[in-house]
Nucleic acid binder design. Structure first.
Lengths: 217, 217
DNA sequence: TTACATATTTAGACTAAGCTAAAAATATAT
DNA sequence: ATATATTTTTAGCTTAGTCTAAATATGTAA
């Protein structure tokens, strides 16, 4: 498994979650910020290694083998993110790039020990679930804040878009993983909301509400 | 700085410590387990990048710039080794390979925080000094156990050869960094010694004595 | 100093991963 | 169904890093 191969499998894994069908060459290229022709070459190689099934002009689909490898990389990425935030006191919007590098370190023993050191966490600092040793990803019953109705509450469990700007906005509003959010009002014509967080009460746009995952309570 | 470039600089840095002159193509090739022709290509490239001075048929010498980069990689390697042993409870003979990978992670902030998290250690688990942020390496006054005379003592501060077998031998004999060793006797014709460690007293060969660094007390 | 041994470099080839430009397949619109 | 647009693949080139085999320096011993 080279670094590039791992990154392709990871990208295809993520795209696979978003749509049932096989994932297209173009979609992979866009996500990887590379050219479709490069993708064609790589998926052919990964198909030979039995990590995915590739049909010309149709796209790619991970095999069980490919899925497990991808889940393993994602597991490492998310465990390292927990380490960076919990132990090194990084802020949750600073850890992605470093974890992109750390996720490729090869040592099963290391990951087992890191997992224990961190107390076997189930979620990363963005609220995304951490696959277990066997590549199984516990699905959470999370929904978008925008789906909550007036007078309902949820606990923030993650974000959809994790751009630096958005995470900083949440930080300013004191919203983090585990924060309880109450929906006090909802304007149906523009999707904006009035919510309360702790003692504060404020207005948020539809854009914000559609990028915040909550677990209903 | 690519991964390969960093590994070459690191190798040249180590060889530079062992001998004053410029380091030879063959020496680098042997240390890197590669071919001399590959080394020639790489040192030419590093010379163009002003990281070393290369003279055909003469060898290579690091510039200040190259030295700093090499020291930075070694700093990262040794800090990660401390992390693996102190925090993840790895044994000191298991950490080298993993640290070889971790040393290439690029993030100054990460290393600063890791250093603080570990309590700004001065030595790695093998007793080797950790270069500071500016690439300065504190030289220790360590000597080989074989240089100690009868009835003198030293504290184990490191090993010269760190093969798995040797480290396991030391472990069996309960010798680790910080262990006090007393020389009870020394056979001058074969260099073997009788030493005591804690309550134990035993015989060691010249080979062992020549691969163990101690600080005299 | 000539001859041999050793060290080093050069030339040319290979692999992984990427790119561009052109060709081919698929999808869509009239 | 034909034409057009879009997607995907192919062909050929590029770079980093490696290798082998051959050529060239350097060092050494008689």
């Amino acid at each position: 498994m080279t670094l590039a191969e791992e990154n392709y499998l990871k990208a295809i894994f993520h795209l696979d979650l978003e749509s049932e069908d096989e994932v297209s060459t173009n979609a992979i290229a866009e996500r990887m910020e590379t050219k479709p022709s490069s993708v064609t070459d790589m998926v052919k190689k990964l198909a030979e290694k039995k990590m995915l099934i590739y049909k010309r002009y149709k796209g790619a689909q991970l095999t069980e083998k490919g899925r497990k490898i991808a889940a393993g990389v994602i597991r490492k990425h998310r465990l390292w993110e927990v380490f960076l935030v919990e132990k090194l006191n990084f802020h949750w919007d600073e850890v992605h790039e470093i974890a992109e590098q750390l996720e490729h370190i090869k040592s099963d023993e290391l990951i087992t020990r890191l997992d224990n050191f961190l107390g076997n966490p189930d979620f990363d600092p963005h609220g995304d679930p951490i696959p277990d040793k066997d590549g199984v990803l516990k699905r959470t019953e999370k929904k978008l804040l925008s789906e909550l109705e007036k007078n309902h509450s949820g606990v923030c469990v993650g974000v959809k878009e994790s751009s630096g700007g958005f995470l900083q906005y949440l930080d300013k509003k004191k919203i983090a993983i585990g924060t309880k959010i109450n929906v006090l009002g909802k304007e149906f014509f523009d999707g904006s909301m009035v919510i309360s967080v702790g003692n504060e009460q404020f207005f948020i746009s539809k854009l914000i509400a559609e990028n915040l995952y909550v677990q209903t309570i």
